[in-house]
């Protein structure tokens, strides 16, 4: 009888201890993207597509984005990383980046003495579905090169 009671007490104490144990979130480093030495130009939300994106660029790309030059800078290199949005687990009311959807690289290269060319590359991420449409190259080039940089202090 006595041993049953003490067993109950031990089990109860263990239960209370386990309730007190804090759940720990599972970090998802696979959502990170390493843009190397490129700097932030801006972020872009698209709720129609349910995506959120970061536009990065090297110094020449950043210069174009700041001054909205009419002619692209030869040597400019842009990276547009697009993630699927997901609700923030700890805060109802915020959407954040989840799995990577696509990575677009755009380089502005010298073709000959007077002309330049666009070197555009579309890579798919984990969230990209084989049935999804590929973006139209010319449209994407225009979209990326026309972006003004976000204002920073």
């Amino acid at each position: 009888m006595k041993s049953t009671i003490s067993l109950y007490i031990i089990v109860l104490a263990l239960l209370m201890l386990s309730c007190d144990e804090r759940n720990t979130a599972t970090l998802a480093p696979e959502y990170l993207y390493n843009a190397g030495d490129q700097k932030v130009i801006k972020s872009i939300i698209n709720n129609k597509k349910g995506t959120i994106a970061m536009l990065y660029g090297n110094d020449l790309a950043l210069e174009t984005a700041h001054d909205s030059l009419s002619k692209p800078n030869i040597g400019a290199h842009y990276t547009l990383v697009t993630w699927k949005q997901k609700p923030m687990p700890q805060w109802y009311g915020t959407n954040m980046n989840g799995e990577i959807y696509s990575i677009e690289h755009l380089k502005i290269v010298q073709r000959n003495e007077t002309r330049f060319a666009f070197d555009y590359d579309f890579q798919t991420g984990k969230a990209y579905q084989p049935s999804d449409d590929r973006p139209e190259k010319q449209q994407r080039i225009e979209f990326i090169t026309s972006q003004q940089a976000a204002v920073f202090p």
């Binding site: 993207y33 843009a35 972020s43 959120i52 994106a53 970061m54 915020t94």
Partner: peptide, 10 residues
């Protein structure tokens, strides 16, 4: 490096 990008609705 960037660790997250968000859209705060509120």
């Amino acid at each position: 490096k960037i660790i997250s990008v968000t859209d705060k609705l509120d």
